[in-house]
Design a protein around this nucleic acid. Structure first.
Lengths: 119, 119
DNA sequence: CGGTATCCTCACCGATACTG
DNA sequence: CAGTATCGGTGAGGATACCG
């Protein structure tokens, strides 16, 4: 588990607030999680498909990030008993609604660019 | 500048979208930026005040994170020509509206916890 | 196909001391 | 007060090779 951002230093905030924020940060955290989520928003994918669509990710990192996302309840992993074995990854309900967070981040980013230009 | 999350791998997204998202990620990025913003949301603070309110941050890191936030247009630094010198940090307009992003992150985090419990 | 195992680098961050 | 300088550890992530 990665060292967390020091949210507990915001003393005025409830621990509920901090736990929830940390959960969200854990989804964002790492170089490849948002790209993975971004692709899975369009539907189920197999390991090799993800690797092809995410330029330059190594299997090591893809495996690690998918495990993290699975442990955090963002991604569901399904193994089909075929030969050779087939594994599919898809977003959970939480994973799908994470879209809202991304949208808010993008909206703020766009407004921020406008704020800076108009000064 | 830190290496960016590989957003360009989400090929279906516009570069506008990716730039905006990266701007937002730059505000989040680092161990102490959210704590600093969280405190500055309550008003202007001096360097030493921030150091006191954020437990265990070293002046080195506080200085670095404040510079990053200033460069990103989130924090405004004002030097008063007194003796000894007095420096105040406050949020810009963008910094203040960043609250919306935090709120969305907290909302998602809370819903996510509920999703997990009800399974 | 769907991953592990190993090794290695570099940037993040802490500790400590010092400065204008 | 408001920082900077220097040193050093650690862990995220890349490269490459291999496995069932």
């Amino acid at each position: 588990m990665k060292e967390e951002i020091q949210l507990e230093t915001i003393k005025r905030c409830s621990s509920q607030y901090i736990l929830a924020l940390n959960d969200t940060l854990n989804v964002i955290n790492g170089k490849w999680k948002l790209p993975i989520i971004g692709i899975l928003l369009y539907g189920k994918k197999r390991f090799k498909e993800l690797q092809r669509e995410i330029t330059k990710i190594t299997p090591r990192m893809l495996s690690k990030e998918l495990k993290d996302l699975e442990n955090n309840g963002i991604v569901k992993r399904t193994v089909y008993d075929t030969t050779p074995v087939m594994v599919e990854y898809e977003l959970t309900e939480s994973g799908k609604t994470f879209n809202r967070v991304l949208d808010t981040m993008v909206e703020w980013g766009i407004e921020h660019r406008e704020n800076i230009l108009h000064k």
